[in-house]
Nucleic acid binder design. Structure first.
Lengths: 205, 205
DNA sequence: GTCTATAGGAGGATAGAC
DNA sequence: GTCTATCCTCCTATAGAC
């Protein structure tokens, strides 16, 4: 008995995690598709294939569902930052990250949250996993930004915080979806275009 | 009797228009503050100071309220474009327009609509005033973009449509509100920063 | 933890008197 | 056209059986 119990517990815990992963995956996709307000908990339940009440056993509110999706994305971002080649220049790293986030967005894997909803903001701010991830990512990017400025490749006149926000904003840039709807360019071309306007600007160099 | 009737009618019509202007003004402000989904018709009615049912005598739906606000903004944009000095270069005109839209946004006068909501999209698409305004504005900006490219001040490698979208996107750039919340810079400084990153880019020139 | 069924409430829209 | 009062749908969240 004592020898089987740990295995059983571990198995159940694994099932639990697998289900929660499936939930987060659905939430992530639906958030990317329709946004927080338009996404309903019924849809999430239907998409996962479980009853709505079961969802609420895993996550106490719709806001927490969204927060879990954001934590998931943040973890992926951290992993991506970690995996960047150490011999890249800081400027290239910044380019890579922006490119990666835009790829996520175009692939329908970037949750889009209203920056205005207050109950959601409160939940996010109270979520330690999310805030820690956000802080770490911001610190890393901030360090690269300052290094790139010191090296002279990034415009020294721009406050690092403004640069950071500008990079973050590419993850929810409406230009991406507009160009995608226009259907004139491939995802790669769209990313290259927006990446260019972001770093090189609209004006001729 | 016959002599007073036209005056009475005109007066009543003027009152009607004045009230609708007040409604649109409230809608505009609330849309800028909270966005379409978070704004409730009850709030609009309370803000205007009339009953909700009265609102529905003027506008048949919440979507039409938002559309009216967008038409209003579009008219202001058309007037602004019209008033730009004819001797300015096309590049300067584009800069001026973007600067103006960002000023509107920072002043809380730029309605923010979700690009995803389908019923709203349908109403907007079906609104001739809005579509006509959008077309005219786009045509004007498009002409300036192509002229600026021909003249060499705007990057020739960028498709004009991508440039147009990029300029439009400044009207709802989250970087503006983030920097405003940070409270480190004045509105003018924020606008100058974003304008610079938009046209000159993040990389050193 | 999963289900069915339902509470509870917000919010868009309307009825009908004046 | 303005009001009060109400309808009705949708959606978050929960109760309670298994």
């Amino acid at each position: 008995m004592a020898s089987t119990t740990p295995i059983k517990v571990s198995f159940k815990a694994q099932m639990l995690l697998a289900r929660e992963d499936a939930i987060i995956k659905s939430v992530n996709r639906l958030l990317a598709e329709k946004g927080f307000e338009a996404m309903t908990v019924d849809e999430v339940a239907a998409d996962v294939g479980i009853a709505k009440a079961s969802l609420y056993k895993h996550f106490p509110s719709k806001e927490d569902l969204a927060a879990a999706a954001m934590v998931s994305v943040m973890r992926r971002a951290q992993a991506y930052l970690e995996a960047l080649p150490a011999d890249s220049s800081c400027m290239d790293k910044l380019r890579d990250v922006v490119q990666w986030t835009m790829g996520l967005k175009l692939a329908g894997e970037m949750p889009s949250l209203p920056s205005q909803n207050s109950s959601l903001r409160a939940t996010l701010m109270g979520n330690k996993d999310y805030m820690d991830g956000l802080m770490e990512v911001s610190d890393r990017l901030g360090a690269w930004i300052e290094a790139a400025q010191a090296q002279g490749s990034l415009n020294r006149k721009l406050p690092p915080i403004a640069v950071l926000y500008t990079l973050y904003a590419r993850a929810c840039d409406p230009v991406l979806e507009f160009l995608k709807i226009g259907d004139l360019y491939s995802n790669e071309e769209i990313i290259a275009l927006v990446l260019s306007t972001c770093f090189e600007g609209l004006a001729t160099r």
